[in-house]
């Protein structure tokens, strides 16, 4: 590039494009040869902060989309409805039934967060994440906007990274929506108290809050592997619904395989095997080995499917 190429365009782009002088232009016509084209004074190297702008544009798209907002609002309804049901049935026979977390919510509102996440984890959260990540690339491909992004040109690796940030953020927002509504509803309906751990010990509320925050973080972390799977499927097709469905199927199949005793040899590597290990954080002595195993399995899924998505997307013919 010659020095002229790095000259930034002034605030009046019209005056910077030779050959486009309007009749009333007072500036003398530049001596630049017309054949050099109007674009030679423009700067074409990536600007500082361009990746940040790409990511922000992606986040605006993901979080500003009505469908996604409805999904998150729907997830937020789960703790609200669960809380109300428990509130009105807590003194009846029904109130004492159900899994531990759910029954405990009436004793301590903090457990409404755990109970709601527990209810959403098998299906509603995977579904939401599948919609967000499956749509990431396939949605742009089906709308045809993918080719125009690549023609800007957005580097394919950077675009995939921005899409991953968008899908991960959406997953985090989904988990946080459940947790936030659960905390507020639980606090209002049942009050927040010192926490009785699974081992029977009572710890102060502040410690309990920290542990619940840990549970929320662990569940968010547990979903990163599924985000990577969804992103990979999203690079394979121009039909977003196909990528979404395939992603849901992966999580369901993983859960089914995890329930078959004969396959116990592969259980530790399954995507969903460690999802419910968040309970470990509610014991007095947290076994960090169990938590670590959950983190490692997700990291492995993220690396394998992230790499597959990258390999596919950077080589793919864009025919949509």
């Amino acid at each position: 590039m010659s020095p002229a190429d790095t000259t930034p365009v002034g605030t009046a782009p019209d005056s910077a494009t030779p050959g486009n002088a309007t009749p009333h232009a007072t500036a003398p016509v530049l001596a630049a040869p017309a054949v050099d084209g109007p674009a030679t004074t423009e700067r074409w190297e990536p600007r500082r902060g361009s990746f940040g702008r790409l990511v922000r544009a992606e986040l605006r798209l993901v979080l500003g989309r009505r469908r996604n907002q409805v999904l998150v609002a729907g997830l937020g309804l789960v703790p609200l409805l669960l809380g109300l049901v428990l509130f009105f049935t807590q003194h009846s026979e029904l109130g004492t039934q159900g899994p531990g977390f759910i029954a405990q919510a009436t004793q301590n509102g903090l457990f409404l967060v755990i109970a709601s996440l527990f209810l959403c984890l098998p299906f509603l959260l995977p579904l939401t994440i599948a919609i967000g990540s499956g749509d990431a690339v396939a949605g742009e491909a089906s709308a045809g906007t993918l080719r125009y992004l690549l023609l800007l040109p957005v580097d394919r690796t950077r675009l995939l990274a921005a899409k991953a940030v968008g899908a991960l953020t959406f997953a985090a927002v989904a988990v946080l929506a459940i947790a936030t509504v659960g905390l507020i509803a639980g606090g209002v309906l049942f009050g927040l108290r010192d926490v009785v751990l699974l081992s029977g010990t009572t710890v102060p509320l502040a410690d309990g809050l920290l542990r619940v925050a840990g549970v929320v973080a662990y569940i968010g972390m547990s979903l990163t592997g599924l985000v990577a799977v969804g992103l990979f499927f999203s690079t394979l097709t121009e039909v977003p619904v196909a990528a979404m469905a395939a992603t849901v199927v992966v999580s369901v199949v993983s859960a089914v395989l995890d329930s078959l005793g004969a396959l116990s040899a592969i259980h530790p590597y399954l995507l969903t095997h460690h999802w419910f290990d968040f309970a470990e954080l509610l014991r007095l002595q947290v076994d960090w080995g169990t938590i670590g195993a959950g983190v490692w399995v997700q990291a492995a899924w993220v690396i394998v499917f992230g790499a597959a998505a990258w390999a596919r997307f950077t080589q793919a013919d864009i025919t949509s």
């Binding site: 423009e42 700067r43 990536p46 600007r47 800007l152």
Partner: peptide, 9 residues
């Protein structure tokens, strides 16, 4: 589109 263009001002 412009926000995604790496060299746009």
């Amino acid at each position: 589109m412009d926000a995604c263009d790496p060299s746009a001002d």
